Computed example of a mutant assay.
Amino acid sequence: MLPDADPALSLEWSTLQDNHERYERGLMWLKLLSVTLSAIALISGSAAHWMAFLVAVLWAQEAILRTFQARLSVRILRIEALVREGADTTAACQLHSEWEAARGSTAGLIAEYARNALRPTVAFPHAVLVLALGGMSLLD
């Protein structure tokens, strides 16, 4: 809870912060799945091209989920600013309204996913694994 904050804003902040951290834990499991699939392919020496494809799909999924997480971050920062300004309950519960007002076109949304996919903390380990598996499949 945020000290000296409107209760509705404080509850929204707590909920969004908890969801933000849940995304983080879930995304770490997704990375672990990528590593596990890659290890299976590298150890077994087979189906590397299919595993590379699966890792690329997991990479894209992480980028999409990171984009959702980033939206939560934007709203969390907005709530913190509202608390500093002494806003009241009418400012609470505006996550989707604010996102919809700022949302771009479909192409803009895809570009946002791509930007998130290329962030170093998202690309690693997926890019390395795709390259390793791709190289392995070329050697077969």
Rank of each mutant, 00 (worst) to 15 (best):
Y23I: 08
W13M: 02
E100Y: 03
V128D: 00
S97L: 13
F68M: 06
L33N: 10
L16V: 06
A114H: 12
G135Y: 04
E12A: 07
N116T: 04
L65W: 01
V83M: 05
R66N: 02
L30S: 03
E85M: 11
L16M: 09
L11E: 15
Q61G: 12
W29L: 12
L77A: 15
L95P: 01
G86Y: 08
G86E: 14
L131T: 06
V55S: 03
A63P: 15
W59F: 05
A123M: 07
S73Q: 13
R25I: 05
S73N: 12
S73K: 13
A56T: 01
R22C: 00
L133R: 02
A87T: 12
A70N: 11
Y113F: 15
R71C: 03
W50V: 10
A60L: 09
A111Y: 00
A52V: 11
A39V: 15
A70Q: 13
T15G: 02
A114N: 10
L42W: 10
D18G: 08
A132C: 14
E85W: 05
S97V: 13
L82V: 08
L32K: 14
T121S: 09
V122S: 01
R103C: 11
L95D: 08
G135H: 07
L32W: 08
T36F: 08
L16F: 01
S38M: 02
V35M: 12
S73V: 00
M28E: 13
V35W: 01
V74A: 12
A60Q: 06
Q17R: 13
V55G: 03
S10H: 01
T121K: 11
L11V: 05
L72K: 07
S105E: 06
N116W: 03
L16R: 03
K31T: 06
E85N: 06
R115M: 05
L77M: 10
L133F: 00
T15P: 00
S34H: 03
L138C: 10
A81M: 07
E100I: 01
A123P: 04
R66L: 01
E98S: 13
L32R: 14
S10D: 04
E24T: 14
Y23N: 14
G26D: 07
A87F: 02
S137M: 04
M51K: 03
V57F: 10
V74T: 11
I76T: 10
R78A: 15
M136K: 11
A127N: 01
S46K: 14
E12G: 09
R103N: 12
A39N: 15
E80H: 07
L11W: 07
M51C: 09
I79K: 02
L139W: 11
L16S: 04
S46F: 02
Q94D: 05
T121C: 02
I110A: 09
L133D: 00
L131R: 10
L77I: 09
A132R: 03
G26S: 04
L11S: 14
N19K: 13
I79A: 06
T121F: 04
A123T: 13
S105D: 15
R115N: 10
L118M: 13
R84F: 05
I110F: 05
H20E: 13
E62C: 00
T121M: 05
A63G: 15
